[in-house]
Structures are given as C-alpha cells and as structure tokens.
C-alpha cells in the first residue's frame, strides 16, 4: 500500500480536513502512516543500505538496529560505523559525528515554530527533537503548516515514530539481505534519497528566497565539500542561505 502523497506547498486547509474532531491518538496515528508513504519507503530503503553496511563492518544485528534508533541520522551513523570498523579512535569518531550533527541545528531552529502549540510539553519537545533528520524534517515542514497548532506536536511525534519504525525494519532487512541484492538495484535504492530530497525541497518552496536557496546551496555544496569536508554542509547552508535571503530581499525592494 502506497499512499500517493500530494506535495503542494503549505496552504490553508480545506473545510473537510481530516483533523476535524480527531482525537490526539488519531492525529498521532495519522502521522505514523507516513511509514507507508513515498518518503517512508525511501527512508526504509536507505536504512536497508545502512543495515548492509553495518553487516559488512562486522556489527551485530542488535547493535546495527540500536545504532539506527539512537542516532536516527544516517550520515552520523555511517561515519561512526566506518571509524569503528577501521579501528580508529573513539574520540575521532565522536568528533566526526559531532560535525555531521551540526546540520541538525538550523533544521531544528526552522522547525520549532511549527511544533509549538497548546499541547506541546517539554517532554514532547525532547521526543520530537530526536526525530529531526532530513526526512522527518521535510515531512514536518510540508504537513505541519496545514494543520492547527494544537495538533502539530502529536502529528510530528507520530511522523517520527512511523519513520523510526520504518528505519528499524529497513536496517534489519538490509542487514539480513546484505550481498543478496544486485548492485544495479542497490544503486537505484541509493538514488531515491537525493531525488526525494530535491523534489521535496522544490515542492515545499514558496517565494524567491527558497528558490535562490536551492540554487545557491546546490552550487556551493560541491566546492565546499572538496575544500572543507566535514564542515561543508553547515557552510553551504550559512553562506548559501544568507546570499539567498538578502538577494531575495534586494530583488523584492527593487
């Protein structure tokens, strides 16, 4: 079952919106169903790739799944896996993981205004925070503005729970199937993630600053990756985002 997910930019909800009269549990479950949508299946495939990698690196299945759950951010996991598999120092691994994690900061800042609402508690925020990785962030970004503030935290925690469940399943499947998938299929599965990220960015963009940010980020990313690997994503965001923001303002004024 694949829910064909409509991807229009944030807009006012129609009158017959699904959340009307829905209980908190129903709003949460509705979020969890993301696991069966296109983004959920793509993340499942990515987690499968991670499971296969963890198997190659000599990890136990339990620890591969545990790592997926406690990090819930593939770049950090892959870096840590690589470091441990090579027998590198834990301090070096921790530093590399910290660098990959910095990118989560601006994403969290940008999502926070959409998580706030009358039902959001400190515990709710701490749980919601754990789900902030690109896919859940993207889905929150896309869906939360369309529903009332009171439902947002429950819905996002539902989205996160569904996606974590999908990745734990995907990691297990990938671990067990490692080596059995032809490389041609594996390549297509790996390719789903960047296509989904880009199309989703375009789908959720509204206004000149968003479009400029996509172009600036795409142009700055590769040279910065070559020049300053590790800090490249953060710098791409800061420099590209700043150029886009002020460029769009200057254009709007002229």
């Amino acid at each position: 079952m694949i829910i064909d997910d409509d991807s229009l930019p944030p807009q006012p909800a129609p009158e017959e919106a699904w959340w009307r009269g829905a209980s908190r549990a129903a709003v949460f479950r509705r979020g969890m169903m993301v696991a069966f949508s296109v983004p959920g299946l793509i993340l499942l495939a990515s987690a499968g790739g991670f499971g296969a990698l963890a198997n190659d690196a000599g990890f136990s299945l339990a620890n591969a799944v545990f790592m997926m759950g406690v990090f819930f951010a593939l770049p950090g996991q892959v870096v840590m896996l690589d470091q441990m598999a090579r027998g590198g120092s834990l301090a070096g691994g921790a530093l590399a993981v910290a660098l990959t994690g910095i990118r989560l900061l601006p994403m969290s800042v940008a999502l926070m205004p959409y998580l706030k609402g009358p039902r959001a508690t400190r515990l709710g925020y701490i749980i919601a925070a754990h789900f902030i990785a690109v896919t859940a962030w993207m889905e929150g970004w896309r869906r939360l503005p369309r529903i009332p503030a009171e439902h947002r935290i429950d819905h996002f925690i539902g989205i996160g729970t569904g996606l974590v469940a999908a990745t734990l399943f995907g990691t297990t499947a990938g671990f067990l199937a490692a080596g059995a998938v032809p490389s041609f299929i594996a390549a297509v599965l790996l390719f789903l993630t960047p296509v989904y990220f880009l199309v989703s960015l375009i789908a959720t963009s509204s206004g000149l600053s968003d479009r400029l940010a996509i172009v600036a980020g795409a142009m700055l990313g590769p040279p910065l990756y070559i020049m300053v690997p590790g800090l490249d994503l953060l710098l791409t965001g800061l420099i590209g985002g700043t150029i886009a923001h002020f460029g769009a303002r200057a254009w709007d004024k002229s």
Partner: peptide, 15 residues
C-alpha cells in the same frame, strides 16, 4: 533560518 536550512539540504543533495 529557513533559507539556511534549505541551502543546506540542497548542498546535501549535490553531495
């Protein structure tokens, strides 16, 4: 902040 997060993900796509 929205532009920064957007540019960051676009950079990730290219990578």
């Amino acid at each position: 902040v929205r532009s920064v997060a957007t540019a960051l993900v676009a950079g990730l796509v290219m990578r």
